[in-house]
Design a protein around this nucleic acid. Sequence first.
DNA 1: ATAATTTCGACAATCGATTGCAGAATACAA
DNA 2: TTGTATTCTGCAATCGATTGTCGAAATTAT
Lengths: 345, 345
Amino acid sequence: MKNKKRTTIYDIAEKLNITASSVSRALNNSNYVNENTKKLILKTAEELNYKRNTLASNLRKGHSKTIGIVVPRINQNFFSNVIAGIEEATYQKDYNLIICQSSESQSKEIKCVNTLINQHVDCIVISVSVDGTDYQHLQNVLDHGIQLIQFDRVADELETLKVINDNEQASFEAVSHMIEQGYKRISLLEGPQNLQIFRQRKTGYLNALKKYDLPIIDELIVENAWTKELGAEATRKVLSISEPPDAIFASTSDFSALGVLEVATAMGFKVPSQLGICGYSNEAFTELTSPSITTIDQFSSYMGKTIANLYFQEMENKEEIEVVPKIISIKPKLIIRSSTKKNGD
Amino acid sequence: MKNKKRTTIYDIAEKLNITASSVSRALNNSNYVNENTKKLILKTAEELNYKRNTLASNLRKGHSKTIGIVVPRINQNFFSNVIAGIEEATYQKDYNLIICQSSESQSKEIKCVNTLINQHVDCIVISVSVDGTDYQHLQNVLDHGIQLIQFDRVADELETLKVINDNEQASFEAVSHMIEQGYKRISLLEGPQNLQIFRQRKTGYLNALKKYDLPIIDELIVENAWTKELGAEATRKVLSISEPPDAIFASTSDFSALGVLEVATAMGFKVPSQLGICGYSNEAFTELTSPSITTIDQFSSYMGKTIANLYFQEMENKEEIEVVPKIISIKPKLIIRSSTKKNGD
DNA sequence: ATAATTTCGACAATCGATTGCAGAATACAA
DNA sequence: TTGTATTCTGCAATCGATTGTCGAAATTAT
């Protein structure tokens, strides 16, 4: 295990009585080396089980062919799907992925970002943590000449490349759908409003109410209900008021919606006839609950591919055109299931 | 964006009229530099927004403080949880993670492993792809002096560090539980037998039958039923024979069990009274189906932490003791839910 | 046969940080 | 004051691969 000396281009060069430069050129398939020596070099490299030292190569070349990713949680469905999507697209171009999770803490997020800068990654892809307020560390990425792509949860004040969902539109459609189903008192479980995505979803909700001339009822809007537990708690609260809602839009996540469903069922509310429920994210389980939960699909894996391709595209233009902030918005899709079919189907 | 020159220790040295070595020493908090100059250097580094070039540092130091991970699918619950567990433990020690997915293809797996060797990672953590037959590429990892830790799906013939579940025991307990519930004709949906984990699960099944003196019925054992679709197909088959099973153990995954449940329900079998179902992995959704599915929890995140700690522990011993192959076996836990409660509760 | 052009390969510098060695500067003791 | 020990700093080599420059050899053109 220890002290194993790996073969370098110098070892190959020495064995063949040539210089390392020729070996390097052969390995990089340059023209400036004789076909025969090239073959000989390749053969010897194979024999000696040579593996290029990417560290040295990258140091010299000044880039790393590596993309750093920072997400709140690796093992959250949406994020792991985005990552898988990025991986698929970058793998073909021989890029590596360094993955960090901020665990929803900005201080850890800052550390992660710094590590990635140290690593000389070519690009940082990030979805910010929930408690973020200051984005100096992201500005810092730009200052170091590293491409920065924000996705989903973005710091809107920062002018970077962004790949997002059209949260407002999706939310609008979801609420409109519920209204058209006949629900009239729709409660909104909203997420931390410092995040743009949650503000947008709220706007969509409000716009839908407005369109259908429904009143905005403050006591039906619950802040910060974005985990299963908080969703459950919020549900207990809104279902206990004198005039409870006849539908709940858990705009933060399907987990929240799951909390809603469990509490509502436990409290004796019939879903969907007495209470409609809509979640957000299209987690796998939404299909399996009874009733199945209406939700919004964010095309997470596609989003990942989009991010990767956006990076490659920008790389190509880098030399010629000045980089302009660009936003790609993906329209999510409303998945209508049983939990909002007020009148059956 | 382009051609941004990053500050190096030389820039700092030049500005302060000292040498780069002193700067390096100060940055590494060495004693061999005056307290005052150290402070000055740190301050200047801060001012110039200096970030260490990890590439250069690692090249010189001969290691990368990086662990490479290769899994079949990043976005599969079990794997993303293991990864999250590894991340948690390694983060504290300032290690980075490079993550690759083999997409269940050995040829891609080999490429991933080679990339990681090139990257000079200090350790490779791998769960092999399903179609693996030859493990030369893993031997190669060892030959390059890189620590190798296999987990879950391991190539048993290779003597490396391994972190696995006690699949046989878990399977034995699951089947025993079903038998004790009164199920007598238990069908086994098994996974590709070239993978040790699936062989072990089969052994556990057979041992349980033997213990309770139940006959082994070949037509109740279905090969290669390890996705939802294959599980569904297998179920259609076994439920159509003249004497159908009264229970199905989807030993490959909960997805397979889900396929079983859907087909069984569609065919009019009552779960759990007419047909018991047990899955494997404790995916989140198993709690949400109706009925909820009995399954086996693998402590995935804990497994990740165990892997990381195993690596750190081996690192400490590396110099003194010769590395010996070591296997850590984690005992999974049977989670009993409604789908196997034959007589209600 | 000579000149002009290619092709090939060696040399040396470079990427940025680290570190062994040696010498300078300072402190302390005799 | 001289000698010894200690602290600090600089020099230069090193990690392994890449690449611009230049000269030698081989090829082609004249």
